[in-house]
């Protein structure tokens, strides 16, 4: 993918630079960070404003669209952001290309699996009826 020395400045910012992937992804990371900033603030504020943190109150809160939808968005955004961040750490510290690929793949599987588990739990809370 890398064009090395032959890459033009435009080619580099369009994603063909030394990092091998590019400008759009960099910007997407920032947009996701900003989204997570808002959703994180929503989560903390919600937890502080709830009358109690017992199971009944929490499942009522997460059964209503006003709780379930932002929480689902928080879960998805948090996992995408976590994967973005962990990938940077792996790319910086794991130098063997094979190990790096394997570790990034493993993290992707874990993130998708854990996020699915969280979303399924949210679905059970919202649609399960057994609050």
């Amino acid at each position: 993918m890398s064009l090395g020395e032959s890459a033009t400045p435009l080619g580099k910012v369009e994603g063909l630079g030394s990092a091998r992937y590019g400008g759009e992804h960099w910007l997407a990371e920032r947009v996701i960070s900003a989204a997570l900033l808002l959703l994180g603030a929503w989560l903390i504020a919600s937890l502080l404003l709830l009358p109690s943190l017992d199971q009944r109150t929490l499942s009522e809160w997460l059964s209503a669209p006003s709780g379930a939808v932002p929480m689902a968005l928080f879960v998805i955004t948090a996992f995408v952001h976590a994967l973005d961040g962990l990938k940077v750490v792996v790319d910086d510290y794991v130098h063997d290309e094979g190990n790096r690929f394997a570790l990034n793949a493993l993290l992707l599987f874990l993130a998708v699996g854990a996020a699915s588990l969280a979303l399924f739990a949210l679905g059970r809370i919202a649609f399960g009826g057994a609050a």
């Binding site: 997460l62 879960v75 739990a121 809370i125």
Partner: peptide, 9 residues
């Protein structure tokens, strides 16, 4: 987070 949501469910 996953444990917490699963426990609530």
């Amino acid at each position: 987070l996953v444990w917490w949501l699963t426990a609530i469910a």
